[in-house]
Amino acid sequence: MGESGSGKSVSSMAVMGLHTSRSARISGSIRLDGQELVGAKQDDVRRLRGQKMAMIFQDPLSAMHPFYTVGNQIIEAYRIHNQVSKKAARAHAIDMLDRVGIPEPRSRIDAYPHQFSGGMRQRAMIAMALSCDPSLLIADEPTTALDVTVQAQILDLIRDLQQEFDSAVVIITHDLGVVAELADDIVVMYAGRGIEQGSAEAIFNAPEHPYTWGLLGSMPRFDRPPTERLLPIKGTPPSLIRVPSGCAFNPRCEFSDRVRGDACTTERPELLPAGSGTGAHVGHGAACHLPTAERQQVWAQEISPRLA
């Protein structure tokens, strides 16, 4: 999770290998099931796309081709990676539409995307993404464009299908509620970097990064009595063309003066182990110059009471 422009989509597109070498330079390492994707042959990555890793996008209307039927688009996705007859693929597509909860899939399969409602389109996108039974599903803001009741349907669907298909899901969102509903592990991004990561419990109940604290204070809590005032983070997110030196959060950080010297403005903090390490799969980590003990103390004594 992270704010707009923090690099969530760019990261997930990199995993899918959807950046062209002309528009982006990618370094580092992406491993899918042990296989290195950075620097791998384009065609090899292409073969993985849709089959081993699949993606659904924010706006289900523009993400489907307006000129082809929903069925055709699902069938196409299936037949790229599976040598089956058109008929078998069609039966599979109907089955998939049925599984994502489209009523009367047999007749709806020949509908065009514009004949579906927003929620149904997103269901169809999910059917398409899951048609090859991928082990990784990336959902980039899958419910941002949907109404809250439809959002709840889609989140339920993703959770149910995740269990049914036993796939890993990466969900990208700026809605802390959605994160809490679905995520086991969370990475908080700021200005193109992960600044805190950990289990959902750790991020919500014992966060250690000042930016995470800020996020939690900025949003009205639906599950608590209404507070008098929200506690916004001052300033605005930085431009990624000129990222502040040192810790990218320093111009907006309330706590930088508690760090000795000028480390906050000169030295970029690394994502280091933090907290009690109660992560399910990833250990809790934060990128901040404040010592862990002090962060925990600030959270417990200053931030947490403010949020309650």
Partner: peptide, 13 residues
């Protein structure tokens, strides 16, 4: 367009 990205994400050539 977004649907081109979708087409690529399917693994089409």
């Amino acid at each position: 367009e977004d649907y081109i990205r979708t087409a690529r994400a399917k693994g089409l050539r």
